[in-house]
Amino acid sequence: MQGNQKVIDHLNQQLTLELTSMDQYLAHSKMYEDWGINKLHDRLSHEYEEELGHAKRLIERILFLEGTPDTASRKAINVGNNVQQMHENDLEAERVVAASLTKIIAICETEKDYVSREILEDLLEDTEMDHIYWLEQQLGLIDKVGIHNYIQSQMGSQDG
Rank of each mutant, 00 (worst) to 15 (best):
residue 1 M to P: 06
residue 2 Q to R: 02
residue 3 G to Y: 01
residue 5 Q to Y: 00
residue 6 K to I: 09
residue 7 V to H: 01
residue 9 D to Y: 00
residue 12 N to I: 08
residue 12 N to P: 00
residue 12 N to L: 03
residue 16 T to W: 03
residue 16 T to C: 06
residue 16 T to E: 04
residue 16 T to D: 02
residue 16 T to H: 02
residue 18 E to I: 11
residue 18 E to N: 12
residue 20 T to G: 04
residue 20 T to Q: 02
residue 21 S to P: 03
residue 23 D to I: 09
residue 23 D to N: 11
residue 23 D to M: 06
residue 26 L to G: 05
residue 31 M to R: 12
residue 32 Y to M: 15
residue 34 D to L: 15
residue 34 D to V: 11
residue 35 W to E: 10
residue 39 K to Q: 15
residue 41 H to P: 08
residue 41 H to N: 15
residue 41 H to V: 13
residue 42 D to P: 04
residue 43 R to E: 15
residue 43 R to D: 13
residue 44 L to V: 10
residue 48 Y to G: 02
residue 50 E to R: 07
residue 51 E to L: 04
residue 55 A to L: 13
residue 56 K to N: 11
residue 59 I to G: 01
residue 62 I to R: 07
residue 63 L to T: 13
residue 65 L to D: 05
residue 65 L to C: 03
residue 65 L to G: 01
residue 65 L to W: 04
residue 67 G to V: 05
residue 67 G to A: 11
residue 68 T to A: 05
residue 68 T to W: 00
residue 69 P to H: 01
residue 69 P to Y: 08
residue 70 D to S: 07
residue 71 T to S: 00
residue 72 A to V: 14
residue 72 A to I: 13
residue 74 R to I: 03
residue 74 R to M: 09
residue 75 K to R: 15
residue 76 A to G: 07
residue 77 I to L: 12
residue 78 N to Y: 10
residue 78 N to M: 15
residue 79 V to H: 01
residue 80 G to M: 12
residue 81 N to H: 03
residue 82 N to P: 02
residue 82 N to A: 12
residue 89 N to K: 12
residue 90 D to Y: 01
residue 90 D to S: 14
residue 91 L to K: 11
residue 92 E to R: 07
residue 93 A to W: 01
residue 93 A to Y: 01
residue 94 E to L: 02
residue 99 A to Y: 00
residue 99 A to P: 06
residue 100 S to W: 02
residue 101 L to W: 04
residue 103 K to H: 06
residue 104 I to V: 11
residue 104 I to L: 03
residue 106 A to V: 14
residue 106 A to K: 11
residue 107 I to G: 05
residue 107 I to A: 07
residue 108 C to M: 08
residue 108 C to D: 05
residue 109 E to F: 05
residue 110 T to S: 12
residue 110 T to H: 08
residue 112 K to L: 14
residue 114 Y to K: 04
residue 116 S to R: 13
residue 116 S to Q: 14
residue 118 E to C: 12
residue 118 E to M: 14
residue 119 I to F: 11
residue 119 I to W: 05
residue 120 L to A: 10
residue 123 L to T: 06
residue 124 L to T: 03
residue 126 D to A: 10
residue 126 D to P: 00
residue 127 T to Y: 00
residue 127 T to V: 09
residue 131 H to W: 00
residue 131 H to L: 05
residue 131 H to Y: 01
residue 133 Y to Q: 10
residue 137 Q to E: 14
residue 138 Q to S: 13
residue 140 G to C: 03
residue 141 L to H: 08
residue 142 I to H: 06
residue 143 D to R: 06
residue 143 D to S: 08
residue 144 K to H: 04
residue 144 K to V: 11
residue 144 K to Y: 10
residue 145 V to K: 10
residue 145 V to S: 09
residue 147 I to W: 06
residue 147 I to S: 09
residue 149 N to I: 09
residue 151 I to M: 08
residue 151 I to F: 07
residue 151 I to D: 04
residue 151 I to G: 08
residue 152 Q to P: 08
residue 153 S to G: 15
residue 154 Q to M: 15
residue 154 Q to K: 14
residue 154 Q to G: 08
residue 154 Q to Y: 10
residue 155 M to F: 04
residue 155 M to C: 15
residue 156 G to N: 10
residue 157 S to V: 01
residue 157 S to M: 08
residue 159 D to L: 03
residue 160 G to W: 00
